[in-house]
């Protein structure tokens, strides 16, 4: 991605996320499968921009790569809990943490990513794929609701969407392994 493209995306996405937040939170599917990933993505875009303007951040990312990675993994995994999805609707402190911690997770992930060993990056890709499949399957077959704010239909729809994400992501990974070699990052 070029910097101009990143800038344009960032400038466009931030207001979109803020304006649409109420609407996205009305459904479990859009809350978990659209809003949360977008928050991480915005952080990631921002980090990409920062890195080009401040090369010192690259050194920072190199030095603290493990801590940065751990922060983003812990944060992202926490936000997969149904409990936090509900809490973000009823507790303003948790809502605030959502808007802070997820973009930060995106920033940390981008800062550490290029300094991680190739094998670890592969494992992370596969783990994300596996997590999408696990969660999607769980939400699809769970007989009871995991969120008090959303209905069972919504939960099953989320299951379908996560499995859809997994399918697309799996195809992307497979194609980059089979056809690629060009994707350095």
């Amino acid at each position: 991605m070029t910097d101009n493209f990143r800038q344009a995306m960032f400038v466009m996405l931030v207001p979109v996320i803020i304006i649409s937040h109420h609407w996205l939170e009305t459904s479990m599917t859009s809350h978990m499968a659209v809003q949360l990933p977008l928050l991480v993505f915005v952080g990631a875009l921002f980090a990409g921009l920062l890195q080009t303007y401040s090369p010192r951040l690259v050194v920072f990312g190199q030095r603290y790569r493990i801590s940065l990675l751990l922060y983003s993994l812990f944060t992202i995994s926490l936000w997969m809990l149904p409990r936090l999805l509900d809490a973000a609707l009823y507790q303003s402190s948790i809502a605030f943490l959502k808007w802070l911690s997820l973009p930060l997770a995106g920033i940390s992930l981008v800062l550490c990513w290029r300094h991680l060993p190739f094998v670890l990056r592969g494992i992370l890709h596969l783990e994300l794929l596996a997590t999408l499949l696990r969660l999607g399957w769980l939400y699809l077959i769970a007989p009871q609701r995991y969120c008090v704010s959303y209905g069972i239909n919504d939960q099953q729809q989320l299951g379908h969407v996560l499995l859809g994400y997994a399918a697309v992501y799996g195809l992307f990974l497979a194609s980059s392994v089979l056809l690629g070699g060009r994707r350095a990052n």
Binding site: Y71, R83, Y90
Partner: peptide
Amino acid sequence: MTVVAVSLGLLAWWQTTQGFRAFTWESYR
């Protein structure tokens, strides 16, 4: 540094889930 990060992460999980017992709003409540 890494140890601190891991501990903080586990602590966050512990706090959020009431000691790895509550994964939903209702069980937490």
